[in-house]
């Protein structure tokens, strides 16, 4: 399908979930509703994969650029951040590393545990 049509589908979905977000009083952003809705519509074959795939690929590939404006916005909050800079950096570094290592290893342990169990069943 043509790119323009694909983008239209994606933007229409965005519009729908932004309306949902405005109506539902939960601290869940429109993008999360959108992700779940898109997944549901793909699974239900309401939207065939081919009708969003190319435009989706472009959006996903350029995604890192979309974080730049918010990150440059650090300039504006610099004065507040500055006072807490050292403790903030320590907290960010330690906790990000801990989350990455622990969540990764717990996942890996459960996978290996399940593999062993299914190996035993096969014997």
């Amino acid at each position: 399908m043509k790119l323009l049509e694909q983008f239209t589908i994606i933007l229409a979905l965005t519009l729908v979930v932004e309306t949902v977000k405005a109506l539902v009083p939960l601290p869940i952003p429109a993008s999360i509703y959108g992700l779940l809705l898109m997944l549901f519509l793909l699974k239900a074959k309401v939207i065939p994969l081919v009708s969003v795939k190319d435009a989706g690929k472009i959006l996903l590939e350029t995604m890192p650029i979309m974080f730049i404006p918010a990150a440059v916005g650090l300039l504006n909050s610099w004065n507040t951040v500055k006072e807490l800079l050292f403790p903030l950096i320590v907290v960010i570094f330690i906790s990000t590393l801990a989350v990455m290592v622990i969540s990764g290893h717990v996942t890996q342990m459960v996978i290996h545990f399940n593999q062993k169990r299914s190996d035993l069943k096969d014997e």
């Binding site: 979930v17 999360i32 959108g34 994969l49």
Partner: peptide, 13 residues
Amino acid sequence: LTPATICLAIPLY
């Protein structure tokens, strides 16, 4: 960013 995040459903699917 919102439409791009929604598209994360594609690799997920």
